[in-house]
Design a binder for these strands. Sequence first.
DNA 1: AATATAAATGCAAATCAGTCGCAATAAAAA
DNA 2: TTTTTATTGCGACTGATTTGCATTTATATT
Lengths: 141, 141
Amino acid sequence: MQISRNKKLPGINIKLNECGLKATLPRIKVVEALQNSKKPLSAAEIYKLTKKYTDRASIYRSLRVFTECGITDEINLNEGFLRYEISGKKHHHHIKCDNCGAIKCIDICIKLDVEKLTGYRINKHSIEFNGVCPNCLKNYS
Amino acid sequence: MQISRNKKLPGINIKLNECGLKATLPRIKVVEALQNSKKPLSAAEIYKLTKKYTDRASIYRSLRVFTECGITDEINLNEGFLRYEISGKKHHHHIKCDNCGAIKCIDICIKLDVEKLTGYRINKHSIEFNGVCPNCLKNYS
DNA sequence: AATATAAATGCAAATCAGTCGCAATAAAAA
DNA sequence: TTTTTATTGCGACTGATTTGCATTTATATT
Ligand SMILES: [Mn+2]
Ligand SMILES: [Mn+2]
Ligand SMILES: [Zn+2]
Ligand SMILES: [Zn+2]
C-alpha cells in the first residue's frame, strides 16, 4: 500500500520507531482511529474504520504490539471482546452504561492495595463496571 | 439419562426448584463439580468432570441460568474463557498467579465507592488480578 | 401410579473473536 | 539504490460459546 505523501504525523512515526516498530500505514491508521475516538474501540470497530488500509489480522497484531509497548491499553468490559484506547497519562478504569452504551473513565484503582494485601507482584489487572448511568436512570425509570 | 436413585442431595434440588429450575442430573452434576472444586472452574473443566452425564451446550446453558439465579458467580481472569464458582456467602474477587496457576479469593471491592463516585446503578462488575504469588516470588527470583 | 406439559437435553451446525503460516511487500538500514 | 528484515494480506484455523431442533425428562395433574 502506497503511503500518499504522508509528511504529517511525525509524532506517531517517531513514537512507533522509539518502540522498535516500523511506522507502516496500517499501524498509523489504527493509531489515528483510536486517537479520533471518544471511547475505547474494539478490533472490529477499528476494522470498520480502517479496512481500506489494512486487514483484521494486522489490526490484531498491531493492537497486541501496541499494548506490549504501552502505546495502547487493553480494556475488558466483559463484552466478549476487548477494547483498546491510547494509553493516557493517567492510569484509570472504566464503567459502561448498559442502556446508552457510553463508556466513562473512572480515576479509581486498588492495584496497590491488593499488592499490599496479598503480597503478589501484580502484572495485570482489570477493574471494570457495567450499569446504568445517571442520565439514563433519570430518563427511563 | 436415568437418575440412579439419587435420593441424596435434596439441598441442591430444592435450591434449583426455588429458582424455578428443574433439578436435572446434568445440572446436579455441574453443581457438584463446582462444590467439590477448590478453585473456580471453566466450562471445559466442568465438561471433563461431568461428560458422562451431559454435554457442552447444556453445561453452558446451566452456567448461564445458574449465574442469572445467583447460584454461581462468573469470573473473568482474562484467560480467554470464563470461570464459575458457587456463589458464596460473601462477595469477593480473585487474583491468579501466572506462575503456579493458583487462584486466590480476595475480600476487597470498590463497587459501592464507584456507585457513589459516578452515580451509576451498577449491575455487574469485574475486579480481577494476575501476577506472581509470594511463594513463587520467593522460589523463582 | 399413569398422563400431560413445559422445560431441558443432546447433537450437530453455526458463530465469533482471535491466531497462524506463508508468500509478497514495504520500511529502514547500509 | 540496494539490501535486510519487519510487516502485511490472505485464507485457513482454533477455541469458546451459541443456536435450532427433535427427543427426553422433571414435575404438576389426574
Ligand atoms: Mn479510558
Ligand atoms: Mn472465589
Ligand atoms: Zn488500575
Ligand atoms: Zn465486587
